[in-house]
Nucleic acid binder design. Sequence first.
DNA 1: TAAGGGTCGGTTTTT
DNA 2: CCGACCCTTA
Length: 882
Amino acid sequence: MSGFSDDMPFFDEPGARPPAASGSAGAPSGIAARAMAARQAQNGPPDYLKGLNPEQRQAVETTEGPVLVLAGAGTGKTRVLTTRIAHILATGRAFPSQILAVTFTNKAAREMKQRIGLLVGEAVEGMPWLGTFHSIGVKILRRHAELAGLRSDFSILDTDDVIRLIKQLIQAEGLDDKRWAPRTFAQMIDGWKNKGLGPEEIPEGDARSFGNGRGRELYRAYQERLTTLNACDFGDLLLHPIRIFRAHHDILAEYHKRFRYILVDEYQDTNTAQYMWLRLLAQRPRTSSAQPAEGRARRDGAPGDVSPAPAEGQPPQAAVRPVSENKVNICCVGDDDQSIYGWRGAEVDNILRFEKDFPGATVIRLERNYRSTAHILGAAAHLITHNEGRLGKTLFTDSPDPDDPKVNVHAAWDSDEEARAIGEEIEALQRNSHVLNDIAILVRASFQMRSFEDRFIEIGLNYRVIGGPRFYERQEIRDAMAYMRVVANPGDDLAFERIVNVPKRGLGEAAIRQVHDTARALGVPMLQAAATLAESDELKPKPRAALREVAANFARWQDLLETTPHTELAETILEESGYTDMWKNDRSADAPTRLDNLKELIRSMEDYESLRAFLEHVALVMDADKNEDLDAVSLMTLHSAKGLEFETVFLPGWEEGLFPHQRALDEGGRSGLEEERRLAYVGLTRAKRNLHIWFVSNRRIHGLWQSTIPSRFLDELPEAHVEVSESGSGFGGYGNPYGASRFDNIGSPTGGYAKRGDQGGSGGAFSNTYATPGWQRARQNRTEATSRNWGTRSGHAVERIGYGEADSGYGAGRGSVKSRTIEGELVAKSVADTPSAFSVGDRVFHMKFGNGNVSAVEGNKLTIDFDRAGQKKVLDSFVTAA
DNA sequence: TAAGGGTCGGTTTTT
DNA sequence: CCGACCCTTA
């Protein structure tokens, strides 16, 4: 027996000791649990069960045995999960510490914790085993680190560290790190680890495909290096525990005893390693070898009888071996239709296979949707039926309303117009006192955000980008963290290298190399090597003195580690190292911000009890604080929108090649397409009431204007729930200069596309549906259109297309476009050719930005240096002479 | 050590 | 075509 003893670090048990650990198999007898159970007996169903629909209630109350909850979008998934936990606690089935609840993101974990707290009240301490796969993995690994060749104070490397490390290894192998990109190899390792594969287990083909066939050696060297550094990458946080569980059945058995109930959120996103980890924990071994279990699920299986798990030698590729042993109280919640992370190793198959893995599993479908209108649900449902291999689920609403708007499909000429039109629509909503926080624009790829950002800056519309660069990824934060990492783990060479010459101490490449070599030769960390080297005479006086100081500093700080509060220590480190001074002396514009960030870093350390706890938080959580007070439109990718909801949603860029993305199609084939479709499904189901889908006819791809074709997904929407906007409804009525007729030819699927596709015939006859001959023909031209960089660079006579003339309107001459040889550059130039009323040097006034000077003119676009707002690009129609 | 030129890539993201 | 990144150069 090992583990779970009081001397194990990082095992803070908030509540009483679990009964299972003391040999009893009975239910916990906590006072709170008793009280709640008693109340339940007296007053009928407890409050927390009220208001659940029958399916939700079944999902909550089926606590025993394997359960799969297929929770469609907006069906109350989180509610079920949290209520289920509350129910288990309230009925005295387990202590908080006996429930393992895993999520993918910290955000989800936090939300769950909070909501359980609301349900259960103060009676129950926070759940120690509710967290992400990785944070629970660390917790386990810290306890048994020595079994993985690590000390319990190991560092967790982030992607950046990993890439630097791999680069060193590639160079050490004598390979060219240009030909063999470290980043690529880091991704390969990540992929292997997602599949649970160590260096010896990777396929020969994979091993040979990198570094002149030296992939396996490199991977092995990488792992060895991590051990030397006393460090882990993210993958190891799962893989090490898996190996430990397999090799030490007594340890695994302790966890089996402990975890009476296992809950998994977003099960469709689990990768193979996570699946193996879960199975090891969930799978209860047979009671005795004399009674080979055969689909026999013991109703009351005492958690006490745990014999070695039959896990030894389990093949890494998830062998499907039915768990037919003791009762497994595992509840996985997910939605196969929202599996959008296949590209990073998620195996939808895990959820599709659940009933085989856990025979006798109860499958509960949550299809009653509380979020969206019947039109939105109808559109989403119809779209997703085009996928094969689903478990099958159809969302419905109890409250259809005939007044609900249909899903709107709009067309625009190009991405700028798309942004402009959406911006105007949002302004119209705003005038109707629609809150901006209730509006989101969800894009397929982040480059699409740019046109929206540009436009919103121009018109002064508040927006926020979700998923941008994060606090802990900033240079100054990472530097500061590196100092603290070295103090906490002197073996962390990567952190040491990062800051040994920051601020500049005259330790150049040569000196650092020497430290490195000495460390290698002596088999000690670089910090120690630096100390040694500082006392020798192998270096010139200057670097020697510098190294001596660095070594002395770290020695001193390490001594302080035990005696000084960690925030104070952090301040000391940043002061004494000269790091704060470095920024104080920096005259660049962002230096003050960086100093603020450092202050903020110190401040945020107060929330953690130790330096190590803080470092771990940063490595795993990397959360940024966002400005919630601001009323702003949200701009994000479809991926980061999963789980969110908005009153009004705009989905721009529904064009072949972008959505579905060409690369998903090329690399993923049919399953790639299906994942794209699921992504579309996720997008549609984010909207509560208003849903606007947009596509454009022309998009700039890699700098070239290309003609585009509407997405096939548009065809997969049911006509009954969709309305195609023929003109820019909603923004034609207040004097915009573009005129309301522009979609007649450009945007409208029939007219515009038929003409542009050189099909002549059907132009002009507008039809309300996109399932028209013209549309179909346009699609047939797709291959041609998207693979062609049409036009010539020499700019021979090409019919002028009337675009961009703010004051003459669209449409002029559009109807006469017959040639296919519309040259991309000319489309752009037609903007530049339009003279602006302003010229360089003019003093102008802008509604939002105030006064400024025109510093460049490009057609009707002005670059203006504003006195206060800085340099902006603005359309000339938005400024007046000052 | 900062600026400048040349090369390359250009979906999605967490931990 | 535009940017990030890397390496070279004054």
